[in-house]
Design a protein around this nucleic acid. Structure first.
Lengths: 98, 98
DNA sequence: TTAATATATTCATATAATACGATATAATGT
DNA sequence: ACATTATATCGTATTATATGAATATATTAA
């Protein structure tokens, strides 16, 4: 048995959180655009606000995404640079259009 | 709506296939050891053969892992170098011990 | 052809993930 | 305090995924 099993579990959770088209789109969008609020993301994806919010919660819970409040808005960003590298490997850089 | 949605779907599937501790362990093991047969993987992970086989099927279906038969055995390997990069980012290199 | 070994597939079921409407909270302006 | 805007949470129906026992297939040797 591989003695490193906890590392696999942790990484698997991280990947699982990333492994959803909507969440990939959110994270990729944040990487391209820098920071963003929920309304922008929502319009961009054309999904109910509650759905977006729940995806963001999952991303937050794994620190893939960081939230900071700015008045009425929550501003989201992607602090972990490893995430950017992984997304770049998978999707590339020039595929986001606002 | 992001026009690149298909790319997200495809990448999400790839990540989902990778996003399981047992499968991460299998892939990481293959990257460290080079090629390997199922029996070795199975002993290494101490799980039923059918479980390992099903995980391998999922990895094969997304071309994360390639299988070639050698007599009785199936020899597995990881042809896509992007996978190695992702695993290295997440887990590092020196964490596998046989 | 039969036996032995290695691996794959099928199936039943348990568990977890997802979507989205309804509702709640938080901040701001009047 | 009240209305407005932005975001979060809850309830629940639906769908997807994981597991392992049983069974099937493939390869080789005798």
């Amino acid at each position: 048995m591989d003695s490193n099993y906890q590392a696999y579990q942790k990484s698997a959770e991280l990947l699982k959180a990333l492994a959803h088209p909507v969440r990939l789109c959110i994270v990729h969008g944040l990487l391209q655009k820098g920071k963003s609020n929920v309304t922008y993301i929502q319009e961009c994806l054309d999904l109910p606000q509650s759905t977006i919010s729940q995806h963001l919660q999952k991303l937050r819970s794994l620190d893939i995404v960081r939230a900071e409040r700015s008045g009425l808005e929550m501003i989201y960003s992607v602090p972990d640079e490893r995430i950017g590298i992984i997304i770049k490997i998978l999707i590339g850089e020039d595929s986001y259009h606002e």
